[in-house]
Amino acid sequence: MAVKFDRRSFLKVVGGASLGALVGGGGKAQGYPPPPMTHQHPQAQQVLQRALAAHPQGYTFFNSAEAAFMEAVVARLIPSDALGPGGLEAGCAYFIDQQLNSMYGHGGRWYMQGPWEPGQPEQGYQLPLKPREIYRLGIAATNRYCARTYSRTFDRLSAQQKDTVLKGLEEGSVELGDLPARTFFNMMLSDTMKGYFADPAYGGNRGKVGWRLVGFPGVAAAYVGFIEQWGKPYEVDPVSIPDLLGGQAQVDEHGHPIHRPVARR
């Protein structure tokens, strides 16, 4: 019961810019039955669109001091520069805030039973702390360190001072008492990267700036006709899950987005 492959929609997938090349390289008819598009119910779409437009973004885990700290951190880890917006503009601090209220923040799928021992590095994470506890302790301890050393909290330091503190955490030379500084730093770094590159549905990667930086198209199209075009740039406007759920991006009959080419810079 394979559905005949529709060459026209296949070509749409990679956009007009590549039509010529594709006709040569598109390959033989290939077909598969389109899956039902559950998210395309017209009313559901309107509701979603309204919800997305009005999406309120307020910190629900971090208190104001913690939020100020995290905003300052993500702005240094991924700076805003000539290449584009950084971690702050991408909403990485908000993303982390939301994550800490979720399964991840509670270590929900980690094995968290004692007895507790530091163990060897090869044995991996062995602290009884959940990510949200690490942030809470780590931010307070780092701010105490900054107060001792510079007489102000982290967010009030100069850019250079901030980088010095972050390097100290990264190398473990800044002491945070019971909490290993590197554990705290590595968690902030990895969560900031998640926030910069994850689907914007999670509150980070605003404007898809992370994806734009590297040229990642987001939710994938069918690349079957393009993948053998060696060296040919695939420059498209990235598409997110909310773009598709909210009807801001078109889909082909199989549910894959139709990527729109961006104007060549």
């Binding site: 549905a201 939710v219 549910g255």
Partner: peptide, 21 residues
Amino acid sequence: PPRIHDELRYAVYHELMQDLS
């Protein structure tokens, strides 16, 4: 799609895999 194309949920948080808790 589009929900399955979610790197955070599936690749980073291992949605389809064993719950170690």
